[in-house]
Amino acid sequence: MKTIVVANNKGGVGKTTIASQIVYSLSERGHSVLGVDLDSQRNFSASFEGAKTLGNALDLVTRGESVKADLASGEIGVVTGHKDLQSQNADDVMANVQAGLLGSSGADFCVVDTPPNFGEAVYGALIAADYLLAPIELKKYSVDGIEGVLEALYAAQGVNPKLQLLGILPSRFDAVKQIERDAMVQVAEAVGDLCVPYAIRNRTAYVVAQEEGVPLAEVKTKSGKDAQEEFGQFFDWLYDKLGEGK
């Protein structure tokens, strides 16, 4: 099972939307997918209408409980978030999350959505993961935020050298705003090849899909069609990075 962690130390960057649509896209390619919600807000848990519930993340964080998913091809299972996740700061949180994720099985992929910080639970996920994807919002201080992502990456790689950065993904991009176009250039110059060569635009369809718990293909509007095409191009690139493309 390949594990992808979607993380940043800042809220409002579209982590949950991107993570949930990655789950749907992997499922549409015929893969079984386990989604794990480490955020106390539990928005990721509500992103999958009709998905199989396979446990609670509080058990993962407090007891290191793993999941035996046994999912069929194309099936989605979810380890749901819990309102008390934010208050868990015991010394063994990192080890519990690492052990729980490493011990989980029964799916082709595991996609982990995270809270807006690099706390113990997130580090535990990173030292168990194969990949990190870091969405960023293109604001004035975007580069400062990237420094935090890279620091977390390097710290986790000290324990887990197999962890790879898939890339820094510009998210909620508004091409109309000059400040965001300037920030895009600044980010590309600062991180070079670490920047994903696609951006996720600030489209209504992403909000609708998130609120209704459905893939973008089920948002039957022009915004939905545009978002599906846009995300599809990004996902094709991601799929190749995961070693699954042709």
Results as ranks from 00 to 15, higher is better:
Lys246Cys: 00
Asn89Trp: 00
Phe173His: 00
Gly100Ala: 02
Ser45Ile: 15
Gly103Val: 10
Gly12Asp: 11
Tyr239His: 10
Leu54Lys: 13
Met1Cys: 02
Lys52Arg: 12
Glu75Asp: 05
Ala175Asn: 02
Ser66Pro: 12
Tyr123Glu: 08
Val79His: 02
Ile4Ala: 04
Gly148Glu: 07
Gly55Gln: 08
Leu194Asp: 10
Gln88Pro: 03
Gly35Tyr: 13
Ile127Leu: 11
Gln233Pro: 06
Phe235Asn: 13
Asp59Gln: 15
Phe234Trp: 09
Asn96Val: 00
Ser104Phe: 06
Thr204Arg: 08
Val185Ile: 13
Glu65Ile: 10
Asp182Val: 11
Tyr123Met: 14
Asp113Pro: 00
Gly55His: 10
Arg203Leu: 13
Lys222Asn: 15
Val5Asp: 07
Glu229Val: 15
Val208Tyr: 09
Lys241Gln: 15
Glu212Asn: 10
Leu133Phe: 08
Ser171Asp: 05
Lys139Pro: 03
Ala188Met: 07
Gly232Met: 12
Gln21Cys: 06
Leu101Lys: 06
Val23Arg: 14
Glu212Leu: 08
Asp193Phe: 14
Val214Tyr: 14
Trp237Ile: 08
Gln98Asn: 09
Asp130Ser: 13
Leu38Cys: 13
Ala205Asp: 13
Leu71His: 09
Asn160Pro: 01
Val187Thr: 07
Gly243Asp: 05
Arg172Met: 11
Asn9Pro: 09
Thr53Tyr: 03
Asp113Ser: 01
Val5Met: 03
Lys15Glu: 02
Glu28Met: 07
His82Gln: 13
Arg203Thr: 01
Asp182Met: 09
Ala19Arg: 06
Gly124Phe: 01
Arg201Trp: 15
Ala7Lys: 02
Gln178Ile: 11
Thr17Trp: 05
Pro215Met: 11
Tyr141Met: 06
Ile168Pro: 10
Leu85Arg: 14
Asp193Met: 08
Ala155Gln: 14
Phe235Leu: 09
Asp236Gly: 14
Phe173Ile: 01
Ser47His: 14
Leu102Cys: 03
Thr62Trp: 00
Gln21Glu: 07
Glu230His: 10
Ser40Ile: 14
Arg63His: 09
Asp70Phe: 13
Ile146His: 11
Gly77Ala: 07
Arg181Gln: 04
Glu180Asp: 01
Glu49Arg: 14
Gly30Cys: 12
His31Glu: 07
Tyr24Thr: 00
Lys177His: 05
